[in-house]
Simulated scan of single mutants.
Amino acid sequence: MMEMSISTPRSEGTTFAIYLPSVGEKSIAQSTYKETMVTGKQKNGYILVMDDEAFIRDLSIEMLGFLGYRVKTCIDGKEAVDLYKAAKVEGNPFSSVIMDLTIPGGMGGKEAAQLILAFDPAARLIVSSGYSADPAMDDYESHGFCAAVVKPYKVEELAKVL
């Protein structure tokens, strides 16, 4: 339970106490941080995250950074393909690429995956979507992906997939 009190600056008026129940899940710090520190599972690698939602990109940076990865983000498939090629040519390749399936008004994950795989058949691509019913999420390997992760991400799931 969490308690929050609200009162006026002069301590006059009414005070409210709001009690919020726990959802019963461990926090990121309780579950993954402890495992990372105790077992020494800190990761090394460079991950590219392609998603049109700023919230998801920011969340990815936090979660993957927490797991020990360096992270770069981009908005659409065209940018992901360009970044992937540039990093590979510069000798600083991405370990994996997490790609959103659907990018409104832009190149999505399926098309970008095909272009990256044409350039680098060994690329490790992970499909991502908030729509778990999409056929590409169930049959990700036939689309060139090596794994799938459902949004919103959970640290434990990202750690397992990577």
Score class of each variant (00 low, 15 high):
residue 105 G to N: 06
residue 90 E to H: 08
residue 78 K to W: 07
residue 84 Y to N: 06
residue 72 K to E: 14
residue 73 T to V: 14
residue 95 S to F: 12
residue 69 Y to P: 10
residue 103 I to G: 03
residue 94 F to C: 05
residue 77 G to L: 06
residue 89 V to Y: 05
residue 67 L to Q: 09
residue 66 F to S: 13
residue 105 G to I: 03
residue 94 F to S: 04
residue 100 D to G: 09
residue 86 A to T: 15
residue 107 M to A: 12
residue 90 E to V: 01
residue 82 D to Y: 03
residue 68 G to V: 13
residue 80 A to F: 00
residue 66 F to E: 09
residue 98 I to R: 00
residue 103 I to L: 12
residue 74 C to I: 12
residue 95 S to H: 10
residue 82 D to P: 04
residue 91 G to P: 04
residue 107 M to D: 08
residue 97 V to S: 15
residue 66 F to Y: 13
residue 68 G to N: 02
residue 75 I to L: 12
residue 70 R to K: 15
residue 105 G to M: 12
residue 81 V to A: 07
residue 72 K to I: 00
residue 83 L to N: 09
residue 82 D to F: 03
residue 96 S to E: 12
residue 84 Y to W: 10
residue 77 G to V: 02
residue 92 N to D: 14
residue 98 I to V: 14
residue 70 R to E: 15
residue 69 Y to E: 09
residue 68 G to Y: 07
residue 105 G to Y: 05
residue 66 F to W: 09
residue 68 G to L: 06
residue 65 G to A: 11
residue 102 T to D: 02
residue 73 T to Y: 00
residue 76 D to L: 03
residue 90 E to P: 04
residue 99 M to T: 05
residue 97 V to A: 15
residue 67 L to D: 09
residue 95 S to K: 15
residue 69 Y to T: 05
residue 85 K to Q: 11
residue 76 D to M: 06
residue 72 K to Q: 13
residue 75 I to R: 10
residue 107 M to K: 10
residue 92 N to A: 14
residue 81 V to L: 04
residue 70 R to V: 15
residue 93 P to C: 04
residue 92 N to T: 08
residue 65 G to D: 03
residue 92 N to F: 05
residue 75 I to Q: 09
residue 72 K to Y: 07
residue 106 G to H: 06
residue 96 S to K: 15
residue 92 N to P: 06
residue 66 F to G: 15
residue 66 F to M: 14
residue 85 K to P: 01
residue 90 E to S: 13
residue 101 L to Y: 07
residue 101 L to G: 02
residue 90 E to K: 15
residue 95 S to E: 13
residue 71 V to K: 05
residue 102 T to G: 00
residue 65 G to P: 08
residue 83 L to E: 11
residue 92 N to H: 13
residue 96 S to F: 11
residue 104 P to T: 06
residue 70 R to F: 11
residue 100 D to W: 00
